[in-house]
């Protein structure tokens, strides 16, 4: 299997890495170089271990308030905060204030 320029563009957009299009051909070549080695896995016979669940035990927590405390303020670490909110440039899907302020923010990207 090999990865195409449009595949790389797609995954770059999914992962928001802001890939410079000038670097695209180089990145495609590098990824193909790496993925070429992965093809060896297609030849491994995995029929003997279909779908075993890991048997690691999972630790659960009691429902008791007691979060790990922050030793620095949120304002200290956040790139931008206002009135206690983290702030980001207004979403394109909400270009202008509208509608019911109590309504949950939803656009097609939210689940």
């Amino acid at each position: 299997m090999s990865i195409s320029e449009s595949d790389v563009r797609h995954v770059a957009s999914l992962s928001r890495v802001g890939l410079d299009s000038a670097r695209l051909p180089l990145v495609v070549a590098e990824l193909n170089g790496i993925l070429g080695h992965m093809d060896a896995l297609q030849r491994v016979d995995v029929s003997s271990n279909a779908n075993e669940d890991a048997t690691r035990p999972m630790m659960l927590a009691d429902d008791v308030v007691g979060a790990v405390q922050l030793m620095r303020s949120r304002e200290d670490m956040a790139p931008a905060m206002r009135d206690g909110f983290f702030v980001v440039p207004r979403l394109a899907t909400h270009a202008a204030p509208e509608g019911n302020p109590a309504a949950r923010a939803v656009d097609a990207e939210a689940p």
Partner: peptide, 24 residues
Amino acid sequence: YDGVRFGQRRPGAGVQGMYEATRA
């Protein structure tokens, strides 16, 4: 590492542009 709650942020066009500039 999206420039929202901690770490470095770079400005960009809208929030998507901010994500991409920050991560690039």
